[in-house]
Design a protein around this nucleic acid. Sequence first.
DNA 1: CTGAAAGCGCTTACAG
DNA 2: CTGAAAGCGCTTACAG
Lengths: 323, 323
Amino acid sequence: MASRKDVAKLAGVSPAAVSYYVNKNGYVSEKTGKKIQQAIDELNYTPNLIARSLKIKDTKQLLFLCNDIRNPFYSQLVHRATKSAALHGYTCMFSPVVNDPDYINRILSYQVSGVFASNNKMDVNQINKIAKSNVPVVLLRDLDWDDLDKKVTLLKVDFSTIMKEIVEHLVDEGCSDIHYVSSSTLNNLDAKSTSFIKAMGNKSYSVIENVSATKDAHEIISDMYFNKEMFPDAFVCTNDGVALGCIRAIKDKGLRVPEDVKVVGFDNTNISQFSSPKISTVDIDSDEIGEIAVSKLLDKINNKEVHDKLIEPKLIIRESSKK
Amino acid sequence: MASRKDVAKLAGVSPAAVSYYVNKNGYVSEKTGKKIQQAIDELNYTPNLIARSLKIKDTKQLLFLCNDIRNPFYSQLVHRATKSAALHGYTCMFSPVVNDPDYINRILSYQVSGVFASNNKMDVNQINKIAKSNVPVVLLRDLDWDDLDKKVTLLKVDFSTIMKEIVEHLVDEGCSDIHYVSSSTLNNLDAKSTSFIKAMGNKSYSVIENVSATKDAHEIISDMYFNKEMFPDAFVCTNDGVALGCIRAIKDKGLRVPEDVKVVGFDNTNISQFSSPKISTVDIDSDEIGEIAVSKLLDKINNKEVHDKLIEPKLIIRESSKK
DNA sequence: CTGAAAGCGCTTACAG
DNA sequence: CTGAAAGCGCTTACAG
């Protein structure tokens, strides 16, 4: 590949002039500029961004740490973030979180300009370690962490209000025994789950742990509730995919949704809008979060003052939870 | 951030020794190694991968160019590729294809070690340009391109056989008028569409253009077939999401699937497995493609001989297309 | 407006 | 086994 030096030689100018021209700093005469452009075209020169990054100490890359890009919530978020970042000359990368003590170090090795994190696999120390290395961090999270580094900007999702709404809605529809299908485990419940439990108060409930994919939901629900009589009045599910698997399991047993069992999902994905029955769900605007994440990250990179933000989910009632 | 120099100073050795130690080239005595490790721990040193990339002229990054990461086919593919690449110390990035003449140059600027491309927005010249810069390219594609650079490795999907199977199946089920819902446009039909048309022979058919998302499918089908009598015997849809929107539109008009109208999708996503009715679809193993893409890319990077590969999709018949 | 020069953090032949 | 030194391709203060 042609380098800046080759271009300079061909154009008969110094390598510095090429840099100036490429970066449009203005210190190049029109005549010199033309010669340089000709040489660039002829050699098909593209600046080496790695070398530039090393020099300017900014890679212009934003890293998105998500549980699973296959979850439509995250793929939508990353999609939007990518577009939004591109407008400012930044590139987004994503990575699933690996369970490896060296993982954070590896991230830091890449010298990314900023990190967005949203997952339940990293603990507060890992997040803090990134922040302490002076890499801007935006964290999407439900629960507070007391010992979170002050430099981290928090996008906080208000699950307790929305869970109260869901429970109220289901009670209005006549439900008294409601089960929650959680993606977290019982000894490390996530905020959705604990908000659910709180919202249920002294009503009868149950929490099923460790379900995050459609297929798992179908299998686990089918196994646990192996005959009709065992089903509760309603399921609240950690995401729409799980709700879909859950509905399938209910139907397989000869029960009807919503007549016999009601179901509510989360994330307002296509699945919930277009399945039969249409699934009641909670809209958490992943497009908005993707945009906010990028804009806050860029503000932090540019040393502007940045504040935490509360995200308010919205309950969308569809066929699966009302008569 | 601490650099190799800082570590060297603290450990009382030369910067070179730190490099040797970190890269485990073996030329460091145990005693020196211990001192270096201590200094690394104390300073929380992580090597700067950007600097290393510049020197060794390999970024160990693989770029995935896809239409839309929100399409489950691609998110699954990239997910698997990311995991697979990580095993060999490579990182995957993805990017949607932007309609910008400079786009290829920007890609080359990143100095990625390899490119996987699968999309209908790039033409053969753009692909060739990447290949000509000696960046290994693996291309997932349906149709042949005569003038494709020989250096590009092709993963070719055999749509004509599978389309014949679909049409045969629907004819067996009594269909004679079948419509295809395409994501491409009529004046630039993709291979799925042309294979469909070929498979239909002289039977009555129609192609609906430019539909790729669930929502669009629902709206467009609802508008075009504004009363019951206009519906054909069956729809074949470019992906499962579109099939889902299509089914919804059919039901909205008071028709039944599969009794009145049959529907077949593509990609065998969760949507098709768990919706009601379960959707007949075509399985194109995105996990397998993700793995193959990475392994072929790595082979090319390591100058091994690499051959093209034919991918054989499989028809999966479910409720939406049989009585 | 233009160029010589230092330096970003690393790797690696080479000499000791 | 260890270190001094060149060089990867760039940016940018500085001097002219």
